[in-house]
Nucleic acid binder design. Structure first.
Lengths: 114, 114
DNA sequence: TTCTTATTTGGCAATATAGCCAAGTAAGAA
DNA sequence: TTCTTACTTGGCTATATTGCCAAATAAGAA
């Protein structure tokens, strides 16, 4: 295990961790439609403004969004060209899981019949 | 905000969270080469066996791996057909970040020159 | 059965995360 | 300047995560 590899995994984990939160996923999906300011995202998520602001700073530190200031309002933009691939991948895992659960039910039925 | 949407985001977050750890990323990448038992993964990661076992149970609960028992040893298999897309996406963000840092350096230089 | 090897689970301490409220900052309006 | 609006930061608590050690389990071997 190389030190370079380790820090690469740590950096990857940092970015993935920034996405590993329901509120932040919601915001990312919304930002994929276009720029949004903090108030708009706050309304979407339904938490305190400060909470949303902190979520946004997590996304910013991970490099997933960038800001554009206009007067007193701050617009957040998504910088994640691969977002569709990313969500499709997670979606595929979820589908596989749903299918797996179905199989379990079937196999239980089969067992109870035998 | 629909309750269905919320729980979808929660489920997505749970899967993403399972990937958001350096040791688990290391294991996932290794498992992409083929099945591995706990000892092999323990050696790879360099933590305690119990720690690795718990990491594996996180991956299993997320549906990202499944097991195959052979006598006393347990082989873990990756179930993530999209793993390449996933890593490529994260890689793209990392590259964009590196590029962004470079830009910052350049813009600082430019500013100090003006 | 006892011994050994492979793995999982329980329990604990250290650290990180999430959310709220209150306080601080920043930019424009009055 | 003061007021207001938009946002960020500090501070706190509750909860979750990580990693270790020790103990439990499971399956063969002796």
């Amino acid at each position: 295990m190389d030190q370079r590899d380790l820090s690469r995994y740590e950096e990857q984990a940092r970015i993935i961790k920034a996405l590993a939160n329901p509120s932040r996923l919601m915001m990312v999906e919304e930002l994929n439609k276009g720029r949004r300011n903090v108030s708009e995202l706050t309304q979407l998520v339904g938490s305190d403004t400060s909470t949303v602001s902190k979520h946004l700073s997590v996304l910013k530190n991970a490099g997933l969004v960038f800001i554009e200031k206009m007067g007193t309002t701050v617009f957040y933009h998504l910088r994640m060209p691969c977002i569709l691939d990313f969500f499709n991948c997670i979606e595929a895992v979820m589908e596989a899981n749903a299918f797996g659960q179905m199989e379990t039910v079937i196999s239980c039925k089969t067992k109870s019949q035998s």
